[in-house]
Structures are given as C-alpha cells and as structure tokens.
Design a protein around this nucleic acid. Structure first.
Lengths: 237, 237
DNA sequence: ATCTAATCGAACTTATCGGTTCGATAAACC
DNA sequence: GGTTTATCGAACCGATAAGTTCGATTAGAT
C-alpha cells in the first residue's frame, strides 16, 4: 500500500499497432511515449489510481469526491471517466490492484532457516505488526464499511488478504504434522487460532481506534511469544 | 433492531385524554401524556431513535437520509431537529443508547453453576455466537466505517462492548488464579486470547461478508471446545 | 371553552456531488 | 507541415440530501 503504488495494472494495451520501425522501443526507456488509445495508457491509469488511493484512504468511500480524486491525480474529470466507468468501478479497481501487496511475502517467513518455533515466532511478529499498520487498518475499515453495499468486493478483499495468510499457515502446519512434529486434528482451525493469538489485544483495539498508534515491538513480542507457547503446548507431539 | 418496525409511532389519536381527573398520575399507566417542553418528551425521543436505528442499520451512516429516518419514525423533520442537533448527533445518541444492550448479561455466564471449565465453555459459546449475529455485525461494520470520522464514538463503542467483556473475563481469570486453579502471568492477555480463540475462524469471515450466515452451533461448539482446551493446557496449574 | 405551545408537513434554501458535454490544446503520427 | 486524437478544463445537468422556515393542527393545561 505504501505510496509508490505505481506499476499496478498490467500493460493492457501493450502491443498496439506497434507500427513500422520501432519508434519508441526504448528497452529500458523511462518515457515510452507511445500513443495509446483513449483510456488505455497504463501510466495514466496508475496515476489515477494513485490519486484515488490517496483520497479514498483519507475520506472513505462515500465521502470521497470524484473531483477531488481528479485534483489529487492531476487528471481531468473527462479523462478519469474514460478510464473508469464510475466511482464504484474505480474503487473496486483500486482495491483489487492494491490488496495483494499487503501480505505479500509473508509466506517466506515460514520457509526460512531455523526450527519450527523460530519460524512461527518470526511469522507471528510480521503478522502482528503488519496487521496493525495504519495503512492496513484504514483499508480494512473502508472495506468493512462498504461490505453491506459491495459484498463481492469485501469477499475478494478477504480472500486475497486474510485468506492467503490462512492458507499458507495451514499448509505449514500440515507439513509439521507430516513431519511428526505436531499433531493437529483440524489444521485449518489451528491456523485461525494462531492468527488470532498473534493479534490478541492488538488488532481489535486498533480497528476501533482505541489505540491510535501501533503497539511497540516489545509488546507485540510478548503477545507473539505467548501465542507460540500456546500453540506448542497444544499441538506439539 | 428487529424487523417489526411497524408500531413505531404511538397511535397518535388512540389513548388520548381518556378521563377528566388524574391527568397524568397513572401509576402503571402506559400513556402518561404529560406536557413536555419542546424536545423533551422521552417517548418521542425513543420513537425517533427507533426509526433512526432502522434506517442507519439498513443503509449505514453516510447513505442514511434524515428524511427517511423521519418517515421511519413517523416524526416530522422539524421535530427531529428539535430533539437532535444534526445527523452525527443523532447517530452518536443512537449508538450510545444501544451499544450497552448487546453484551449485557454475559458476565452472568461466569457466575453460574459448574466448574471453571464448564463456565468457560458456556461463556465462550455465548460470546462466539453473539459476536457473529447479523445485528451485532451490522452495528460493528457501521461503527468501524465511521471510526476515522468519529474516533470518540468508536472508542466508546469499543469501551462498552468489547471492553466490558474483556474486563469481566479478566476478573474471572484472576479469581481462578487466586483460587490456585490457574497460573497466569498476564491475565489481561489471557482474556484477550480466550476471546479471540472463541471467534477464531468465525468472526472475521463474517465481518468481511465471507460467510453470509452465522456458523451453525456445532461448529461454534468445536471452536469453543478447542479454545477452552488451549486455555486449560496453557494456564491450568 | 379558551389559550398555549409542541408538533406536523410541506415547501424552501443551500450545497455537494456524480456524471456529461464540448471546444481548446498539444503531442504523436504521417 | 498537416492530420489525428487523447487529454484538458471548465461549464453544465440532474439528483439528492442536510437543515430551515412557517403557517396549520391539535392536544394538554387552565
């Protein structure tokens, strides 16, 4: 989510007529400057999305004004509506292109060096920290607030956010079982449990604005340590 | 909250004077009918709040229209604005008068008969079930969605909802420690943990609309059983 | 019965916003 | 140079909604 959201959308129009003699084929060129069909310039699209991100994140979906998004993106209203059907479409596109980024690379923590306990600890720290990030929370709040109006979006948001995490963790726990290290009847539930334990007393408070800043690392550490301890006590063979 | 919104407005003409004498002294009278200053009739106030609840719950804060609330409440717009400053004020008042109700009486589950394990199980079942109720979730979603705009409200919502639960549970766990049954370094954390564990894999999915209906009791039961088991394994002396 | 004031109800004001239109501009192509 | 066309920008439209006003109504108080 950070601010360099740039290369989000796939270069849809990539090979247009491509014309005769490679007029712009600059291989590592920073300014392609090819002529694009209306609404097909990926750079412009990204530019709009970036402005949209800023405004949506600041004011939420309902109160975000399209005009304001144009201003923030440095794009005219007419152009914006060439790239996106309407407000909802823009919002959906934004969420779809952004959400993946959040928890990307989390799985790596489970494949690194160290024994199971170490891995779980590292994973838990990343998870507990990341989930309480202001950007993540703002995104979650907005999506949750629009769940009633756009159920599909919220579902997909969940599926590529929380769900990814859960799946990865479940796989890991199953592997531990296969290795004879753990004994878990319901690995899915166990994954849920670990996730919840790693944010126990942290995430929900943040979500409701009870804590206005993320907990300090030391606190997160304590929570995660306890979480790991509980998991081991319960599931270690 | 429920859907039988019908009899919202008191049958205006119904039980009017009904008598010459004793105009307002009715001891168990259902229609006091005292003359109130403008904006001070509690019945009318409640009537407005009821309509507001219906509309806010149906459409969320931003999209709820004051005119619609008037219609739902059977009250004129002018009158509504005598009772409440503006939309935000009305919403805050609604949340403040409603939120207590949700988790009321939960503590009782911890004082009933049975051993500690039984109590925890009963408590967990109530908690896991209640939190995934459509009404609770709708309220939570709306408040979460307005957290950025009305931080105080969300905080207070949390304080008298989740917080009450946490406090009660923490007290209970401390008592268990005092009785020598448990050994817990950080009872606060332990309370958080148990709460999260009781809704592991249930609440968040519901919150993001991934599950459109509450889990069946049998599933909740499994989750809670595991939660209790973990707590006992970890903290029982 | 009469007075009083809370409420009704419906129009009104003001403002915002989503979305459209269209002539002007400028840059890529030939 | 001349043509094409994506974009600009600024006005514009229609709808919606928050909040106000004010005369009409009606029920409680005397």
């Amino acid at each position: 989510m950070s601010d360099d959201s740039a290369p989000a959308s796939a270069p849809k129009s990539a090979a247009s007529p491509d014309s005769g003699t490679a007029p712009c084929a600059g291989p590592h060129n920073g300014a392609p400057k090819r002529r694009h069909l209306a609404g097909e310039d990926p750079a412009k699209r990204a530019q709009i999305l970036k402005g949209a991100q800023k405004v949506f994140m600041e004011t939420g979906f309902e109160r975000a004004a399209m005009g304001e998004i144009c201003r923030a993106a440095g794009v005219s209203k007419g152009t914006l509506y060439v790239y996106f059907e309407n407000k909802e479409d823009l919002f959906v596109a934004l969420v779809e292109t952004t959400r993946d980024a959040f928890f990307q690379g989390m799985d790596a923590k489970l494949c690194c060096a160290g024994d199971t306990e170490t891995k779980l600890r590292a994973y838990g720290m990343s998870l507990g920290t990341l989930m309480c990030t202001p950007e993540v929370l703002r995104a979650q709040r907005i999506v949750i607030g629009t769940t009633e109006r756009m159920p599909d979006l919220a579902r997909r948001f969940y599926d590529t956010g929380a769900r990814q995490i859960q799946d990865g963790l479940e796989r890991f726990l199953r592997a531990c079982c296969a290795a004879g290290e753990f004994e878990i009847e319901d690995p899915r539930l166990a994954a849920y449990q670990f996730i919840e334990l790693c944010s126990a007393g942290l995430w929900r408070r943040r979500l409701f604005g009870k804590d206005s800043a993320p907990a300090d690392p030391e606190t997160v550490r304590k929570v995660v340590d306890q979480a790991v301890r509980m998991m081991l006590l319960t599931y270690r063979r």
